[in-house]
Amino acid sequence: MNIHSIKRAATALVIAFLIIGVLSAALLAPIPYFRDVHSDSYLGLVEMIVYLICSLAVYALLFVVLRESLRKSTDTLFMNNFAKAASFGGKVLLCGSIAFEAFFLVALILRMVQGHIFEQTPSYEAIVTSLGFELACVLIGLVGLAISVALSVFAKALAEGKTYKEDSEAIV
């Protein structure tokens, strides 16, 4: 497995989960059962589970990239591979976070639209539960973003050679 096939797999994964997310939000939102108090918590739970699975998939993918880099590494080549992997992992996490924030936005808009159409005012409990789930999902997204930023900074530092040994006997 080379870096390009991993990149393609990650891109496909992010796109697939984005489509699944938007479709599930679109399909679940209009169903009457999902409009009462339980519905919001159920939908929120589904969102959060999907989001967690996707986050784990991204982290697993990043782990595979790092493992591949470590396996193939020899001295300075390791640094280069790690820089590539970290930069790539950061981009994947960033894409994943953006994709799923878009998913939550679509789900929220759909819920607001259906609430307006059916003239149903959500109860206080439903609003709090829903907001709780949304907040939890946003927090997971923020953690992903923080990791991606840290990885990107680290990769950049590696690429600029800030962490390389100062003296070398190398002939390049």
């Binding site: 300075t76 080549l77 690429a159 050679g161 390389y164 390049v172």
Partner: peptide, 12 residues
């Protein structure tokens, strides 16, 4: 490698 290019750039 990026590492070698960095070393070359810095005259190391």
């Amino acid at each position: 490698t990026t590492a070698n290019m960095s070393l070359l750039k810095n005259g190391k």
